[in-house]
Design a binder for these strands. Structure first.
Lengths: 337, 337
DNA sequence: ACTTAAACTGAAACCGTTAACAAATATTTC
DNA sequence: GAAATATTTGTTAACGGTTTCAGTTTAAGT
């Protein structure tokens, strides 16, 4: 393996000069630099990052921590996230991936090991970890889950707005009897999405009917159960908004089980736009949560932070997008014309 | 940040002794070692991996490279893989994740940067990368995709056997008219699965009907199209084996479109057991490809390899598992009694 | 008690890089 | 053309560990 000293020898200069030349230090005369760069390229020189790290006290690695490796709900999550991150992470950083739940010693999470950290958070259980991060002083961003702490850089989707827009769309199609299957109690996203739901109904002067608010926990099962109870109502809704796609799939199965056809008899809207929402039958109309964009944006911000450590942390929203597929139909000859 | 020299100072020994004590070197007297370990713990000592790396010429990182970040078909893949890997990767290795297609310079993949590499391969396009790896001398394993090169450590599922078993099951339920939707031409997995399919039919002395062999490419669309053509046959099959779940989902949608109900009129078997196969309607009977196990096993083998570099490379198979759900029914009063 | 071997500890060099400081060379300035 | 200044390069010491080799104890043998 060839080192800067090897280069120095063939270039007839000191290794310091080589180091400077290769790092774009302006002290070096242009022609010297060019010569050294040429030689380095010829010799196929690759810097030793361990040595660099040691002296620079930088690790050249970014850690990606996501809630749980063992709780499989959110598969496309990770891929999308990694995709987004790699788009902006420059090549001499490497990205390590960890499950928050599988960290044995928080002590091993030190500034020396991570230049920065991305937390792809899905649950409140991550708070302890986030708190620890804060202690260490490692620059970090929390992605995906909205935090209340203004001291933390936080990139999330604009759930509330997105849901409102989707419901506006449904109402525009004539729906008046509209239900919601809520997410897990206590999650920020649950209340945000519910708010968006209510925003739209209220804006359209539609009544908020308690029977149409059903509990869920973001799991497929809970969607199934909630939909079952909705279908048992004496006056069932014509449109159901599910706070995520997993529950929408559960709800869909409840409809199959009850022999309800979609979107003929009932319309359904999901949230997230997971990979499979396009392959359900009928394909699910949903609100896309742009995980890749969130990750990309978050990474950009994190890098900015690394370079300028005392920039103020902000909370940033990225736009959701309504994906119209086929699970919502116009309600037939029933609108209040 | 505290170093071995700090520990040495408070312990009243040389930093050399500390280094040895902390690394389990048998030269150190037990009581000295105990004392040093206690002090290290008290001081919250964490070794500096950059320094260690530098002198040991080890990176303490394992790279996970997977085929394509941008081709979203196989999302649960990555999660399962990471899950499996973390189960066995000991804590002082860190795992970095990369898309093969986003590597700009192969030169950056050097033995100094990776102690070992896991290649989660899904396509032949990875061969160039695998070839490069071989050049570098970095110990590596190729997971998931069967290779012909006997010089490479390779962990894959036993596709052929698994498919045979699944078809045995279908035939046991009375099916005689059985079709296959094949995977992408040229892929090893395609031929393996097809072989398993034929193995079973032949073992049961069933004819191999050319019309029942349809082409696919592992994409959802291709499953849809293949199923459409199968349904147009004058004598359509009663059981269709799809070479992966994605195509099974496409096939399922074709059935919906044609008004065919499953499993009443037609039975379907998939392959992979992707996350969503349990949420289709009806839930898909499929063959589970144990990605987590493959990864786990592969990682174990890789680590073995790191510790004993000249162990012979092998090709290892891990067992698939038939997941019986509800897309296959017994064929009604039609068996050749 | 005295040598000799065994057990343990320490001094110093090294891994490949950057950086503070010193030195050399080139360029102005008068 | 010498002094002053600017530009470019080199010397040397870190960074935090491991390892070789030498040195010091301690235990064993006679």
């Amino acid at each position: 393996m060839i080192t800067i000293k090897d280069i120095a020898r063939v270039a007839g200069v000191s290794h310091t000069t080589v180091s400077r030349a290769l790092n774009g230090n302006p002290l070096i005369k242009k022609e010297t630099r060019d010569r050294i760069e040429r030689i380095a390229a010829e010799l196929n020189y690759i810097p030793n990052y361990s040595a660099k790290s040691l002296v620079m006290k930088k690790s050249y690695t970014i850690g990606l921590f996501f809630s749980s490796i063992d709780q499989g709900t959110s598969a496309s999550f990770l891929v999308d996230a990694i995709k987004g991150i790699h788009q902006v992470l420059d090549e001499n950083y490497s990205l390590t991936v960890h499950g928050i739940d599988s960290i044995r010693h928080y002590d091993a999470i030190t500034p020396r090991r991570f230049d920065g950290v991305l937390v792809m958070s899905q649950s409140e259980a991550d708070n302890a970890f986030i708190y620890h991060l804060k202690q260490t002083g490692i620059p970090f961003v929390v992605l995906n889950r909205q935090l209340d702490d203004p001291g933390i850089l936080n990139v999330v989707a604009n759930d509330r707005e997105g849901v409102r827009e989707a419901l506006d769309y449904g109402i525009g199609l004539g729906h008046r009897k509209i239900a919601i299957i809520e997410g897990r109690a206590g999650f920020k996203s649950t209340t945000e999405r519910k708010q968006g739901f209510m925003d739209s109904l209220i804006a359209h002067r539609l009544p908020l009917i308690p029977d149409y608010f059903t509990a869920g926990d973001y799991g497929v099962e809970s969607g199934y159960n909630a939909m079952m109870s909705l279908l048992s109502l004496s006056d069932p809704p014509t449109l159901v908004f599910c706070s995520n796609d997993d529950m929408a799939i559960g709800a869909l199965n409840a409809c199959y089980a009850r022999g309800i056809t979609l979107p003929g008899q009932l319309s359904l809207i999901g949230f997230d736009d997971i990979l499979f929402s396009q392959y359900t039958y009928p394909p699910l109309t949903t609100i896309r949560k742009p995980i890749a964009d969130i990750s990309k944006f978050g990474t950009t911000k994190l890098i900015e932070r690394l370079e300028q450590p005392d920039s103020a942390p902000e909370q940033l929203f990225v736009q959701t997008e309504l994906i119209v597929r086929q699970s919502v139909a116009a309600v037939k000859n029933e609108g209040q014309l």
